[in-house]
Computed example of a mutant assay.
Amino acid sequence: MVDAALIQQCADPGLKPAIVMQFIERAGSLDPLTVTVRSGNRIVLVPRPTTADEALALIRENLGRNTIRVGITQYPAGLGIVDAGQLKPDLVDACQNIRVGTALFAKVYRIVAKWYGNPTGREALPQILEDAIIAWQTGYFEGTAVFRAPDPGSLKLTAPMPAKNEIRRGDNDPIPGDFELSRESTASDPNKADIRIDLSGIGSREK
């Protein structure tokens, strides 16, 4: 289990620590030097790095040829990188990896939530989280490449809990009930994204 103090210090402030824990438990790694290499759907066996330099060398060796996930959040190593020389040791630093990984995951969550019609009831939020984790693992949601897709913007959701039958998968119509939805333009770069998303509704389902 990742240290709670590290999550409190480094994770995106818009995500509840318990949600970050679920995200890392299901889609991440406890070792900040973990480098996972895939060719299509096949995992490529690679030597386990023991130092940051070894991890970066392994990433550079596979960048552009295979899909690479790195560190505690299993961040997509090639995102926004054209040349292997642009790689920084920060990618395998535990705190920095959590920072950029949770920021990018929050964007993925917003993409999934928008597809659902931005529902606010507690019944829908666990399913959105489930789909967001799967989208993080695969890189896609409903045909959208979530890592490179535009950020739909920060969401501020406040609403009474709607009835279960008021939430329909794929329904883009507003959910009945009195709620406020505000959006702000954010940068697609996860290092610069201004992320504010309230996931407090998932509290009842936390592990």
Rank of each mutant, 00 (worst) to 15 (best):
T34F: 01
P119G: 05
A159L: 08
I197V: 08
C10Q: 02
A124T: 06
L199H: 07
P89H: 06
A4W: 04
D53I: 09
P13F: 00
P47L: 06
N97H: 11
R38C: 03
V35W: 00
T51N: 12
I111H: 06
V37W: 07
A135C: 06
E166L: 09
E130Y: 14
V44G: 01
P13E: 00
N118Y: 15
R69P: 11
L15S: 04
Y116E: 07
R42G: 01
P49L: 00
R48F: 09
D93Q: 12
Q96K: 11
G203L: 01
I128N: 07
I133S: 14
N191S: 07
Q8A: 11
A4L: 03
N172Q: 12
Y109E: 10
R69C: 11
L15Y: 08
S200F: 06
A11Q: 00
N66G: 01
I24T: 09
Q9F: 00
V100F: 15
I81M: 10
R48T: 12
G85N: 15
N62D: 02
I167Q: 01
R148Y: 14
N191T: 14
V2E: 14
V82T: 13
R48V: 15
A5D: 04
S188P: 11
T36G: 02
M21C: 09
D93F: 12
A132N: 01
K16M: 12
L104C: 04
V108W: 11
N41M: 05
R168Q: 04
G64M: 10
V112G: 13
P126G: 03
P76N: 11
D3Y: 08
S204C: 04
R169E: 02
A11I: 01
N172E: 09
L129C: 14
T34Q: 08
N41K: 11
V92I: 13
T120D: 01
I19M: 14
D173Y: 02
L33C: 07
Q22M: 11
P174M: 08
D31E: 07
A103D: 05
V2S: 10
G139Y: 06
Y116N: 03
I24W: 13
A57E: 07
R65S: 15
D171N: 10
P17M: 08
V20R: 10
L79K: 13
R42K: 03
Q86W: 09
V70P: 07
D189A: 03
R168S: 09
K114S: 15
P89W: 00
L63N: 13
L87V: 05
A55C: 12
V44I: 15
G101E: 01
G14C: 02
L91H: 10
G101R: 09
A132D: 04
A193H: 09
C95R: 08
Q8I: 00
I81G: 05
I43K: 08
E206V: 15
M161N: 05
Y109V: 14
R169I: 08
G85S: 14
G64N: 10
T138K: 07
L30I: 06
A106D: 04
N191G: 13
N62T: 01
Y116L: 05
L91D: 00
L157H: 07
A193E: 11
T51F: 04
I111F: 09
I128L: 06
R69H: 15
T34I: 00
I72W: 10
A27M: 10
P176W: 08
D171F: 00
P162H: 05
K156E: 12
V108Y: 03
Q22G: 02
N66Y: 04
